[in-house]
């Protein structure tokens, strides 16, 4: 199925959770925050939150800034 991650189209397997997605992208769950269709996905629910076709995902982290 097709989802959008940080503005870019991605093709992923059916039934993946947010937790699986982070693992696939090699991202440490404790260093990121994720928004799905403009709603925050609490870290505690990464494993149980299943991705759906057409989801818009934003994955952010802290970077240097003033």
């Amino acid at each position: 199925m097709k989802i959008t991650i940080n503005g870019e189209p991605h093709e992923i397997e059916q039934g993946l959770s947010i937790f699986d997605l982070a693992a696939t992208l090699e991202l440490a769950p404790d260093k990121i925050a994720i928004e799905r269709n403009r709603s925050i996905v609490p870290r505690s629910t990464f494993a149980e939150t299943r991705l759906c076709d057409g989801d818009h995902i934003e994955i952010v982290c802290f970077v240097g800034g003033g």
């Binding site: 090699e26 260093k31 990121i32 994955i59 952010v60 982290c61 970077v63 800034g65």
Partner: peptide, 17 residues
């Protein structure tokens, strides 16, 4: 102070703050 930005999905070896 720190900024919040999209993670870099292409360069995974980029250092993290």
């Amino acid at each position: 102070t720190v900024a919040v930005r999209r993670v870099n999905l292409t360069d995974k070896d980029k250092p993290l703050l």
